[in-house]
Design a protein around this nucleic acid. Structure first.
Length: 403
RNA sequence: GGGCAGUUGGCGGAGUGGUCAAUCGCAACAGACUGUAAAUCUGUCGGGCUACGCCCUACGGAGGUUCAAAUCCUUCACUGCCCA
């Protein structure tokens, strides 16, 4: 049933940053194979932002690999911890959510995660099930097992503390709560991004405190967003969402900087080791246009979450708009009875621009056109005969139709 | 409980009575160019307008001083640091 340990290890290590400690993982794998008993692999997720992107997918895909190897995937929806607000990787306290909100988000989360995981073989658990049952006394006893100095070892806590930024006491409880999840689930391995390393390690200590064999931790790199610098996240608007339409995905992938191409291939696609090597070699070849590799990357990713066909359609659409500078297939419509429209009014009314001033600015910058003809006079009046295409900037179009 | 410092536009961060819709950096947007919605360069970046000038709203909240306040005073809220 289980493949040889060496073979398993090769797949498990792909892309991983840390496996701590690796010998323990090997021991666990050996035992699992001998006893024909799958390892329990835990992945916690934060339901405060339920829109998954390919950055989340990196670690979900790792969980999927464990499933493929026959191990048991446990997805912990942090509905309870969502109420605390994990400050990992952020320098600010997050606003807490209500339990209901986190439950709803958790469901949404799973729906999207199911694009990657083997739906039938994934256990979904909500940590409010056990955490909300803990009494204040339980919590104090738990808190007694860790020290403030150790908490302050965590990089972001330390930074915030030094910078004189607020750290609330409840934030210290987050790693402990997450550790209790591991105790409750008796996890063998816990996955996470490198930014989760501290939390995962606390899990080991607390499991030991509760008389369990500590979990092995495995961290995956954090994927930078389309800006190429910051961690992919929705709030920075540098993400590629798993539910994004193919066209949207294509554009966003094309906008990543060249130096991220390899990383994306490595962490976000399933291409083989050999192909990865070939991508690396091609990137080093100065006569080869990197945009070709980006195109292929975009097609690979879209094929995973949509289909190969929609990937091709998205690529054609991309060329039509940006290479040939023509109008996309389906654009929003605006119906009107009025025949004469001052351009500025039409731009604001159709929501192509936020304000009149913005409309004026765009006209001055030569970004506005009607049926392909540039409008340079901000007092211009547009006559809506039957229909026309209004364009503001390179990505905003609207079809204006006379009623 | 006491003392000190702080709260500025999406973010970071200048500005200590008029010349401040607020230097600068990042992000964003536009144009040019290109190998792509990369990079680079240039410009824009609160709202409204009868528009090279005018009006409105805005520098944590409320009130006050003043011809005039982001800038001074009072008070409330929040945050950090130090002492207890």
């Amino acid at each position: 049933m289980f493949r040889p340990v060496e073979e398993q290890l090769q797949l498990i290590k792909r892309g991983a940053v840390d496996i701590i400690p690796e010998e323990e993982l090997i021991r666990k794998l050996e035992r699992s194979r001998k006893e024909q008993k799958p390892l329990r692999i835990k992945l916690g997720c934060d339901p405060s932002r339920p829109d998954l992107h390919i950055g989340h997918a990196v670690v979900l895909r790792k969980l999927r690999q464990f499933q493929t190897l026959g191990h048991e995937a446990i997805l912990v929806i942090g509905d309870f911890t969502g109420m605390i607000g994990d400050p990992s990787g952020r320098n600010k306290t997050r606003p807490p959510l209500s339990l209901e909100e986190t439950r709803v988000n958790g469901q949404t989360y799973f729906e999207q995660a199911a694009k990657i995981l083997d739906r039938e073989k994934t256990s979904i658990v909500y940590n409010s099930d056990w955490l909300s049952a803990m009494s204040f006394g339980d919590v104090i006893r738990l808190a007694g097992k860790y020290t403030v100095a150790r908490m302050l070892e965590r990089d972001d806590f330390e930074k915030r503390y030094r910078a004189g930024e607020p750290i609330c006491v409840h934030e210290f409880l987050y790693p402990l709560a997450q550790a209790m999840d591991s105790v409750e689930l008796v996890s063998d391995v816990e996955l996470g991004g490198t930014d989760q390393k501290f939390n995962l390690l606390v899990g080991r200590d607390i499991q030991r405190e509760y008389g369990q064999e500590p979990q092995v931790i495995l961290t995956m790199p954090v994927l930078e967003g389309t800006d190429g610098v910051q961690k992919m996240s929705k709030s920075l608007n540098n993400y590629i969402g798993l539910s994004d339409a193919p066209k949207e995905m294509f554009g966003r992938i094309m906008s990543i900087p060249d130096n991220l191409i390899y990383k994306y291939y490595e962490l976000a696609t399933d291409i083989s080791f050999d192909e990865l090597e070939s991508v690396k070699a091609q990137l080093q070849n100065p006569s080869l246009n990197p945009s070709l590799l980006k195109r292929r990357l975009a097609r690979e990713i879209i094929a995973m979450y949509h289909s190969a066909d929609s990937a091709q359609i998205a690529e054609e659409e991309f060329d039509r708009i940006f290479k040939n500078k023509s109008v996309p297939d389906d654009i929003p419509e605006f119906r009107t009875r009025a025949v004469s429209w001052p351009v500025i009014k039409l731009l604001t009314e159709t929501r192509l621009t936020e304000s009149g001033n913005e409309a004026r600015r765009l006209i001055q910058q030569g970004a506005v056109s009607v049926n392909g003809e540039k409008i340079s006079d901000e007092k211009h009046t547009v006559t809506v005969d039957r229909e026309l295409i209004l364009k503001a900037g390179k990505r905003k179009f609207i079809r204006v139709i006379a009623e």
